[in-house]
Amino acid sequence: MTLLPAQTERKLGLAIDLDICVGCHACVINCKEWNTSNYGAALSDIDAYGEAPAGTFLNRIHTYEVKPPEGIAQTVHFPKSCLHCEDAPCVTVCPTGASYKRVEDGIVLVNETSCIGCGLCAWACPYGARELDAKEGVMKKCTLCVDRIYNENLPEIDREPACVRTCPANARHFGDFADPDSNVSKMSAERGGMALMSEQGTKPVNRYLPPRPKTAPASGDIDILAPFLEPIAEEPKGLLGWLDKALEQI
């Protein structure tokens, strides 16, 4: 049923920290590994060992270079998976009802048994978060690991998305954005969490925590620090003289 719920009881999603993401792709592969054997059909890899391998992934890491008007460029690693939008166009365009947004937690899912693989939802997504599986002909997307987060067969502590559990840099955080006191809401508030392409009106749930400001090579605070380099000696003799006195103190 492709009408969107008026609102959802919870808004589960990810807070992704661009300040610490080192671009290691661990989340990408662990996501693939978990999801190829769990919810829905396997994630295929076409021409797996050949000239143009093309597989289905639910999460991808882009690497950007950002050049400030003046000063040196910086490199930013940028993970991207479904943002579980509140106004998810991918859902409303779906002719079959395969795409839907869950009332209880806001997770956007594809019910593969009724998906005809028309691809319209992928066209409707501004973020490139949906990939049609070439082998199964059904639409694939991040499930927010709906088969992990409530899974009673997993220990409590592991009931979080695979990508979050595996991220070595702890750059991915999972939680309920509807609850202002949740880890992700707080983090997002503190760090000025960003909604991507807000002009597209999709109201994404996932938030991106921007990179913290960097120190420039010739940054001003040398004056504040200068005292620490106050010379006690220009040449060895002087230093050893000072040393002798200094050693008395200890």
């Binding site: 992934f57 270079e65 930013v76 991507l196 392409m197 002009e199 991106y208 921007p210």
Partner: peptide, 18 residues
């Protein structure tokens, strides 16, 4: 706007995800 990095500077792709 896609990356949210505009307020730092001009953005270009350095490495594609695949």
């Amino acid at each position: 706007t896609a990356t949210g990095l505009g307020n730092i500077g001009d953005v270009r792709l350095l490495e594609p995800p695949h």
